[in-house]
């Protein structure tokens, strides 16, 4: 990772000091495919960041949504403050903040710090998604479950949550797309994901248009495929009905 180490030398780009480009790619007029291939190698990082941020955001989101909906008024107020702050500040600003807070305590790579930070930002949005879904399942289902002797916890886990998660898939699919796209923000922490590689090769080959087009194409494919998959999941989990 020393290769991509950040150095703060007060240049024009501040954090975004370019690491060394592989010698053979420098200064040449590359064809589109070679360029695309070079940039696509960042996909692993993009997917890695997404694969960490999205599920961790979901886990925290579900937990916080439970607290919000079932935790009483005091806790609901705290959750509301959390949600308002997280959603009221640009994710990049939060990313920097959390990165410097987190990396003060533990020595984390930009990749891990960025992924975790993005997951925390996302947890506020996912909390709102799950909260809305829990509320629209409604208290009647909870009451029916309690009427046959289930505890509150059993009723929420077995009756309300499975229905809420189904309802949450369409808005969650939106959030998944946002996280895939927002994973590009970790480039600011020096992670060599798609956008960062596009920037590097674009600058060194003087073909920025082609480079960013390639990046756009890859993001577009990732987001579209993810949405399609979630769409299929939604269809598969739909409860049969005649109405």
């Amino acid at each position: 990772m020393a290769f991509f180490k950040l150095c703060f030398c007060g240049q024009k780009y501040g954090l975004l000091v370019l690491p060394v480009i592989r010698q053979e790619l420098k200064g040449e007029n590359l064809d589109f495919l070679t360029l695309l291939k070079y940039i696509a190698e960042g996909t692993a990082y993009t997917l890695g960041v997404t694969a960490i941020a999205l599920p961790s955001g979901l886990l925290i989101g579900i937990l916080l949504a439970f607290l919000y909906v079932y935790g009483g008024k005091g806790i609901a107020r705290v959750m509301n403050v959390y949600s308002t702050i997280m959603r009221g500040v640009p994710p990049l600003v939060l990313l920097f903040l959390l990165y410097f807070v987190v990396s003060k305590g533990i020595n984390l790579s930009g990749f891990w710090a960025g992924s975790i930070s993005l997951g925390i930002v996302s947890s506020a949005y996912q909390m709102e998604i799950i909260r809305g879904a829990l509320l629209s399942v409604g208290n009647d289902q909870l009451m029916a479950a309690r009427a046959i002797g289930m505890s509150r916890k059993q009723a929420v886990l077995n009756i309300v949550l499975p229905q809420a998660l189904r309802l949450a898939i369409p808005p969650w699919s939106n959030e998944a797309a946002i996280i895939i796209k927002d994973s590009s923000l970790v480039y600011a922490l020096g992670v060599p994901e798609i956008l960062r590689r596009a920037q590097l090769i674009g600058a060194s080959t003087q073909q920025p248009l082609l480079a960013y087009m390639s990046a756009a194409l890859i993001y577009f494919v990732l987001v579209t495929v993810t949405n399609r998959l979630l769409n299929m999941l939604e269809k598969k989990l739909t409860v049969p009905s005649n109405h």
Binding site: D140, Q141, M143, R146, A147, G149, P162, Q163, R166, V239
Partner: peptide, 20 residues
């Protein structure tokens, strides 16, 4: 309460089956 409710069956006006 849970133990009491186990022994008392309840049928609601709007059925309230578990939809899923």
């Amino acid at each position: 309460e849970d133990h009491v409710r186990q022994q008392i069956g309840m049928v609601f006006q709007n059925f309230l089956l578990f939809n899923h």
